[in-house]
Nucleic acid binder design. Structure first.
Length: 457
DNA sequence: CCTGACTCG
DNA sequence: CATCCGAGTCAGG
């Protein structure tokens, strides 16, 4: 049992004989066994403090989470799988009809031949892969002149979700526990985030009708328990406000304003009350793009405007949030001089590519220099929060178990009777995990499944 | 920008 | 026949 735990992540231990030992004891053994491995990986980055204070104790927390696992409604997934299988078959027939022949829709090469050669649809000449024109979702969405594009798009959605989630998840339910046990890997990402494999429970769908159906299948498995989800809201931009000291951005967070509305008001120079939905969604894209060190080119594509226009929005944005502009400008330079970037807790990411002459490679590294302090600091803070949650639950004798971490979200399964106390505790642990110049805001929700949740604290 | 899984060839 | 690998695509943050 627990073979999946032995396969990767923190689960390096074969658990066969110790199946009846309790989670804490197993976690302790994992800590002992994993220490050298983690030290080898993390020690290179001179993480002494971070390693002792965060990464080491976190090993035990992750091991407990892996052992706890999550419950899924297998019957619901089976029923959904039946429906999707039938739908995919119908769509397949439709697509063959429109194409005038049968082909492998899942082969980008064959699809490209049908769309751009046989049917003569216009490819997006700006989007090419190594082998030819791209057929990705963006491109297909632009091919509205032929019914087939929308059909293929829908076919892709259905088959992707069916094979990756609906069919795969039930097979990973452990026979002993009746639950799914992922592996959280602590030492693969460049930024300090966790990753999750076998299965990856950090990319469970949420968008779209079908995505929501899948998320609904993640349930509280124990009697009289509920799922509790706690989410940092806009943690990366809050960290950016902290790092840069941008007064305008800090003010928005101190007043707990609607960030996207406030940014739109600044960009377009209108009162907050006069922000229209398109203006808000435009500002939202800029806000999301900043942490990625987004290029005008990408921003333009996201917003559906010209590169010049996107450039004007970006300039306007940085006029109103000047310290952010300085940050985006200066961080790559400073990183180049240092050879690395650092997160709030001192985690280092070397970026030797900043000195490369090849501009594509260097630009990518420059975006990493912008992004990593935010993404990595958010990861640091979440890790501190998880340690705090574990200790606090223990101290208060609460029965809640952490089950998942999805970068800015923590999911627990908790006895319903303890929900109010647990919700408040998790909220406070996360909010107080690290003190910034702006508050850390946490949204806590609870419910019987991972989709339908109500505010809980 | 950071990931992991699936499919094809 | 089994297995590996790169490429393409797309799920999440």
């Amino acid at each position: 049992m627990f073979e999946h735990l032995a396969a990767g992540g923190t689960g390096q231990l074969g658990l066969g004989e110790e199946a009846d030992a309790d989670a804490a004891a197993l976690a302790a053994r994992q800590v002992a066994l994993l220490k050298p491995r983690l030290e080898a990986r993390l020690g290179e980055l001179e993480l002494e403090g971070l390693f002792a204070e965060v990464e080491m104790p976190l090993v035990g927390v992750l091991a407990e989470m892996e052992l706890t696992g999550v419950a899924v409604d297998v019957d619901a997934l089976a029923a959904l799988g039946e429906r999707l299988g039938a739908r995919a078959k119908e769509m397949e027939a439709d697509i063959y009809g429109l194409a005038g022949e049968e082909f492998n829709i899942g082969s980008p090469k064959q699809l490209r031949q049908i769309l751009f050669e046989k049917l003569g649809l216009p490819p997006d000449r700006t989007k090419r892969t190594k082998t030819g024109y791209s057929t990705d979702a963006d491109v297909l969405a632009g091919l509205s002149e032929h019914e087939i594009a929308a059909k293929v798009l829908e076919y892709r959605e259905v088959t992707k979700l069916k094979s990756t989630y609906v069919d795969a998840l039930p097979r990973l339910v452990n026979a002993e526990t009746g639950r799914i046990h992922t592996s959280f890997n602590q030492a693969v990402t460049a930024t300090g985030r966790l990753s999750s494999t076998n299965p990856n429970l950090q990319n469970i769908p949420i968008r779209g009708e079908l995505g929501m159906e899948i998320r609904r299948a993640f349930v509280a498995g124990l009697p009289d328990h509920v799922l509790l989800s706690a989410d940092y809201s806009q943690i990366e931009l809050r960290i950016l406000a902290h790092i840069t000291g941008d007064e305008n951005l800090i003010e928005i967070f101190l007043r707990d304003e609607d960030l996207h509305r406030a940014a739109a008001s600044e960009i377009f120079g209108v009162g907050p009350g006069d922000v229209t939905p398109p203006m808000r969604s435009c500002a939202k894209m800029v806000n999301f793009g900043i942490p990625y060190g987004i290029s005008d080119f990408r921003l333009a594509r996201e917003m559906g405007v010209s590169v010049e226009e996107a450039g004007r929005y970006r300039e306007r944005y940085f006029e109103r949030f000047p310290r952010l502009g300085e940050y985006v400008e200066e961080m790559p330079k400073a990183a180049r001089a240092q050879g690395y970037v650092k997160t709030l807790l001192g985690r280092r990411r070397p970026l030797p590519e900043l000195r490369t002459r090849a501009s594509g490679v260097r630009r990518a590294a420059e975006r990493m220099a912008v992004n990593t302090p935010m993404q990595g600091s958010a990861a640091d803070i979440m890790k501190l929060a998880m340690l705090r949650v574990r200790d606090s639950l223990r101290k208060r004798g609460l029965g809640a178990k952490m089950t998942l971490q999805v970068h800015d979200e923590l999911v627990l399964e908790t006895p319903r009777a303890e929900l109010p106390e647990t919700a408040a505790l998790v909220r406070d642990c996360m909010a107080e995990a690290y003190e910034l110049r702006v508050p850390l805001k946490v949204a806590v929700k609870a419910g019987g499944n991972w989709l339908e949740m109500e505010p809980a604290a």
